[in-house]
Every structure is written in C-alpha cells, then in structure tokens.
C-alpha cells in the first residue's frame, strides 16, 4: 500500500515538474505544432530568375534543401556559401538545393545570386507558396525534403549548419 502511494506521489511530482517545464518553455511545444514535418511537401510552380519554370515535382526522388532567404537577411548570407558548397559536394548523390527569395523586390536578387555564385535554381517566392509551407514568419527557413517527397525537417531561424548537413547526409543515405 505504501509502495503504491509512493508511486502515485512520484507520478504526481513528475506531472507537476513537466507542467512547470512546459509553462516555462511554451515555444518548443508551439514550434512542433507549427511545423509541417512528416507531411508531403506541397507542389509549387514558380519562375526562376532566368524565366524558366520551376516545380518541386521535377526533383522528386532527390533529397531537397528548400531554402527561403532574402538579400537583406544576414543569417542567409552566412548560410548560402555552405549550400553552394553542398550542392557541389552532394549533387551527384541526388541532392538538390532550391532557393526561394522572399525579397519584396526582385531587382537586387539577380546581383546577389551572381555575387554568391548560387549555382542552383532560385525563384521569387509568393505569398501563396509561403503559406503552403506553413508560413514564412522570419528568415531564414530551411526545409529538408526526402526522396519520398515528405518534409523531414523544418528549421525557422538560424540553425546549426553542421547539424543541417548531417540531416541531409542521413536522408541521402536512406532509400
């Protein structure tokens, strides 16, 4: 009987501690609910900067890093050279970076793409497309999409690039 009472007290204490943790850290809970991880990545059709058509489905079967960025976003400026490097490093393993510019004005985007030697498809994002991906409520936003077309990870804000590379490698290794 005493053992049972102790167990109940321990469970109760754990419940209270967990409640206090969630109360103090509401963001971690909210972030999960706001994500789109595990869902099929929504199809989109956009125009690249050179005017050609860009769809997500044409890259089906590849591991995709979908990067929402902007020319004024300095964390994006830190990330993009790494993405260019990864495109070269993992491209022949079925990896593809796609850049979606969230600039209000397309004018500076072309110059930025040239200066940063972004040798992967870049298109101007739209409100509709951003909403399809759960909303772009700050930059950068990176999504890792698996070969099966499902969203494996969504990162809002600055994220550890070594960790992101690891996530991509994991997807490249999985069939």
């Amino acid at each position: 009987m005493t053992g049972r009472r102790t167990l109940i007290l321990v469970l109760l204490a754990l419940f209270v501690v967990a409640g206090m943790f969630l109360w103090k850290n509401p963001v971690s809970v909210a972030r999960k609910s706001a994500g789109t991880t595990g869902l099929d990545a929504p199809e989109f059709a956009l125009k690249t900067l050179d005017g050609s058509r860009l769809t997500l489905s044409e890259y089906r079967g590849k591991v995709i890093l979908l990067d929402f960025w902007a020319t004024w976003c300095s964390p994006c400026q830190e990330e993009i050279p790494r993405f260019v490097e990864w495109q070269g490093k993992y491209g022949n393993q079925g990896f593809q970076v796609i850049g979606i510019s969230m600039d209000d004005n397309p004018k500076p985007v072309q110059g930025f793409v040239q200066d940063f030697r972004m040798r992967y498809p870049v298109a101007m994002g739209t409100q509709e497309m951003a909403s399809q991906f759960g909303g772009i409520l700050g930059l950068p936003v990176n999504l890792v999409i698996g070969r099966d077309g499902k969203i494996k990870a969504k990162h809002l804000g600055m994220y550890d690039l070594n960790q992101l590379e690891q996530e991509i490698k994991t997807q490249l290794d999985s069939q």
Binding site: V27, L137, G138, L139, L156
Partner: peptide, 12 residues
C-alpha cells in the same frame, strides 16, 4: 529575439 514566428505567433 529570433523572429516574429518564434517570439510572437507561436507563443500564442
């Protein structure tokens, strides 16, 4: 601190 999503929208 981070962005509008993390610090406003997702905080409810």
């Amino acid at each position: 601190a981070e962005n509008l999503g993390t610090d406003w929208v997702y905080k409810g």
